[in-house]
Nucleic acid binder design. Structure first.
Lengths: 241, 241
DNA sequence: ACATGTGAAGTTATTCACAGCC
DNA sequence: GGCTGTGAATAACTTCACATGT
């Protein structure tokens, strides 16, 4: 009897699907794109050479980050950071402001599951990592790996996952197990309290709302790059005769 | 004298910046999102268990890929693939149709620069790879690594990059060198004819139009996941009092 | 009934462009 | 004069919803 009755109202509204995980962002929470760009800005600013000036203009930061000046200004607007028309943005303050938005005040711990080639590479990648966000535990089923310390990180048997994750209050999970085990491992982590997932396994994770999943699909990225390598403006597109 | 005279017309129109690399997609070329989803669809369909039915409905493929039925139908529409209301989509035909769009008929070769932990992990990841797209050469400056064969892939000294890339007609580059060398290595590859780049180094590449770059920024992804792990609907947001 | 294919509508993201201020 | 901050305009992407087919 409602005035506006869609014909297929019977079907469940087909929610955006746990599409990227952030089930309909709460107010005041940034979008994925904003967060990603802010992270890049911060890293670029931190990596600045010592003698560089203490301020930066939006268009300079844009050039560094392959963005646009307007985009940079918008992004900084979303975190309420302001600069001066004369000098631009104070770099030290900006780094701090981004930190207030991105970092957990008390720090966050991450766990990595699957200490294969890729898992070890990531452990190495993240050892020299700021204390705000660190991989503090790794898990594997292979008893040849468990009990050891790899790249400064202790490797536990998968059976201890729940206990370790709970004990350390780990909220982020990195999945580097084979595709066949990814879903199971993710569910174990979710049950232990992990809320954010970085999935390197070549299969999408299916988790309920209340979990955020970012797919790092290397295979797909590779295929995407290959496609555009062939379809760029000046490409001798190996297709049409 | 033009009727519509923007005030800052003097500034270069500030092109979308080599934003993601696909400088203003030519007509008939798919968007990055479409290509990425098609890649995922194909992989999921290929990985199907043997006894599964030969057809699939849009909503089933959507469930597998964390998408929506409407999105799947749109994506298939963009490649001109059609199904039947009664049976859905023929899986074998769909895999083939996606292949016609994504794959180079004659195959494509990729080169990997930087045979460190991550580089080796990726070589391993891609050894069991379809012939359509393979890493056919790796490069490194470390003479302890060059000349060897790692995960079936020959490692050459960086000095031979140009020759090898040209000789093998390599069009895709994977960058796994430290941040400080990424730009230089990318430019070498570009000069040798590489057009598509997958960049794992934690710094954005600056290449001219005519090159496509996909940033695989693990650090940023990690920070994004950490952020949303704390800002999910039911999160005990460690922020507000 | 239920699924496809697709204009139309809606949503989100990016860019424009200008007022105001160093 | 060149830069910031931002409403307004535009573009990109996604979803709705229904005509149509089986």
């Amino acid at each position: 009897m409602k005035p506006k009755q869609p014909t297929d109202l019977m079907a469940p509204p087909e929610r955006p699907a746990p599409v990227a995980g952030a089930a309909g962002r709460a107010p005041g929470v940034l979008s994925e794109k904003h967060v990603a760009r802010l992270s890049v800005y911060r890293r670029l600013l931190q990596d600045r050479p010592a003698g560089a000036p203490p301020e930066i203009y939006s268009h300079d930061l844009a050039a560094l980050s392959r963005s646009t000046a307007a985009q940079v200004r918008r992004d900084l607007m979303t975190i309420g950071f302001t600069g001066s028309p004369a000098r631009g943005y104070r770099i030290d303050q900006l780094i701090e402001a981004i930190g207030r938005t991105l970092d957990a005040p008390a720090g966050q711990g991450a766990a990595l599951c699957g200490v294969g080639n890729l898992g070890r590479a990531l452990l190495d990648y993240f050892t020299i990592w700021r204390p705000q966000l660190r991989i503090v535990a790794a898990f594997d089923t292979d008893t040849a790996k468990t009990g050891r310390v790899i790249h400064r990180c202790r490797v536990y048997p998968l059976a201890e996952l729940e206990a370790v994750v709970r004990a350390q209050g780990i909220s982020v999970g990195v999945i580097t197990v084979p595709a066949a085990s990814a879903q199971r491992v993710a569910e174990m982590m979710l049950a232990a309290g992990v809320r954010g997932f970085l999935n390197f396994a070549p299969t999408p994770l299916h988790l309920p709302d209340g979990a955020y999943v970012e797919e790092m699909d290397i295979t797909t990225s590779m295929e995407t790059v290959a496609y555009f390598a062939r379809h760029l403006p000046g490409a001798a597109a190996t297709e049409k005769p």
